[in-house]
Design a protein around this nucleic acid. Sequence first.
DNA 1: CGCAATACCGAAAACGCTTTCAGTGGAAAG
DNA 2: CTTTCCACTGAAAGCGTTTTCGGTATTGCG
Lengths: 343, 343
Amino acid sequence: MAQPEARPSRPRAVTLSDVARLAGVSPATASKALNGRSQVRAETRERVIEAAERLAFRPNPMARGLLAGRTGTVGLLTSDLEGRFSIPILMGAEDAFGVGKVAVFLCDARGDAIREQHHVQALLERRVDGLIVVGSRTDPRPSLGRDLAVPVVYAYAPSQDPADISIVQDSVGAGRLAVQHLLACGRTRIAHVSGDPGYLAARERAQGAGEALAGAGLTPVGDTLFGTWSEGWGRAAAGLLLDRHPELDAILCGNDQIARGVVETLRERGRRVPEDVAVMGFDNWEILTSGSRPPLTSVDLNLEEVGRAAARALFSAIEGSPRSGVETRPCRVVIRGSTAPLS
Amino acid sequence: MAQPEARPSRPRAVTLSDVARLAGVSPATASKALNGRSQVRAETRERVIEAAERLAFRPNPMARGLLAGRTGTVGLLTSDLEGRFSIPILMGAEDAFGVGKVAVFLCDARGDAIREQHHVQALLERRVDGLIVVGSRTDPRPSLGRDLAVPVVYAYAPSQDPADISIVQDSVGAGRLAVQHLLACGRTRIAHVSGDPGYLAARERAQGAGEALAGAGLTPVGDTLFGTWSEGWGRAAAGLLLDRHPELDAILCGNDQIARGVVETLRERGRRVPEDVAVMGFDNWEILTSGSRPPLTSVDLNLEEVGRAAARALFSAIEGSPRSGVETRPCRVVIRGSTAPLS
DNA sequence: CGCAATACCGAAAACGCTTTCAGTGGAAAG
DNA sequence: CTTTCCACTGAAAGCGTTTTCGGTATTGCG
């Protein structure tokens, strides 16, 4: 006889009616009992719950969502191929939503605007309840538009449209924090080697660093050196600095890669880190900070917190209380071997 | 008058009935027209399609899934906090599934077995059509069990249960490929510095390397040095090797971090890379390979291909043709400056 | 011109759940 | 003892699709 299934088909899922039948009540009553509605006798509720447990009943989210008009899902749209930024944000969002309450679709647009559009469309077709958009760099990015069917929260990189809500780390504050740490280590001759000046993050960190120095009545050692976000640039810049400003006692680097390069050149040029020169970076990318000799002090962007905040903002927008504007979260310094008080 | 909405409520989604009404047909006919069923006059189909476009109609996936008994979603369960391995696998899976056809829930168990269980439960409650499990290391991992309600594919790390289907990269072959590349560069005195011998990846890569050497009639320079997966170990091991075997002309490293350390020590000890000693690693982690001096040749694990294969395997299991056993995908050598032919 | 076959369309059921509303029985109040 | 009220339960509608099946109009054929 024709048996289309190639193997024993998986058991049909148990439905609310199955539970109701076992408990000897109607589906309506079973629903009320399981959802804590008040109009059920305690003893009945008991029976229904026990039946549900015996059958390992799990309500079908599609049936439920069909009524409620909600799916209990959100989309996380990233452009960051490595997941360097989006994974911590995803984990923060998972925390805030709570496992099992809301599930997250992760889509990677791979830096491609039209692929991003496809993903947005696909997510909307799936009727996600909301969207979190993670930029590939901290510069303001184009808004997805004002009349999407669902609320959108921008994380890591703000939207260009001030009517949108964006949650970002405080880059200016990060620069300030970094310099304050170096000052606390007794350093006063501080240089700054940054990355690509086309990146807002580079400029803002430099700005914050400058403010903190000025606040302490100090002037930076030389101008900020902008270059690229690479170890190679770090090596080159450190050479430059040592030639021009041999007196420096700290180098603040625009990210961890630059810091790696700087540390390497300092070592080769016979400067001890941190005794002679303290070095620190930004991003706190463990793979880079831990392998360095000595391990790198770095400013952590607190991306999990950004993710949590984004999730909360999205949640309240879904509930009907949207916010707007750009909200920032503080960063924090993670101290390792490359900075230490002057003895 | 009582207006519960705090702001202009989002427009109600357009339904098939709206389309049908506009086209002057019944919902049944509209459905058939849009889904390419044959029992619709061409002219009618035309009208329906145009109406659907005018209203920007998108079928509600929950209603559709409710009938079909499928959600069109899969869960990707990872344990790898950084996303280093899971993101490429996710992208491969996205490719294979196709944007819009299947959406992927990404969950990170953060290496915690009970959090993993929670996520599995949550995904099952959502009625995902299947699960891809990405291990945190390549060693076989416990199976999720045989009687889950949906098919499961293990990627990167195989399941311990041979009845499950696992898709992994070919670590032995990777070791072989690496040595073959070094041989092609004319190197014959090849040492191997690996990571933690508790990792299967370390042992398998070493095995493959040994086989390739033996196949060429060569013997390795010294025993494989096992240690940790760190730059520090790479630096130390390179020192050891240079002391014991100054004649070596290539060092194969268990991963890119070790290779970074090895390159650094070689430079400090005055050996030129690649002229005197060729160096290569595994994983092809761009952040590490590109910053090195010279950039590192490395074996890429082809994780996107693993992801694609896992997605295809999952798809065919969902369609009713499950496979089982461990299937491997080849790796590939990415050549950069740290290896070159002996001149 | 009559009949069967065909092409096309729509009513209705179904998926699994929640919610509304009417109905039942018992207890409290008169 | 009758009336009112309350607590509880279940029938039924509805969410937005797809699919089955019966019905009608049209066509082809004898």
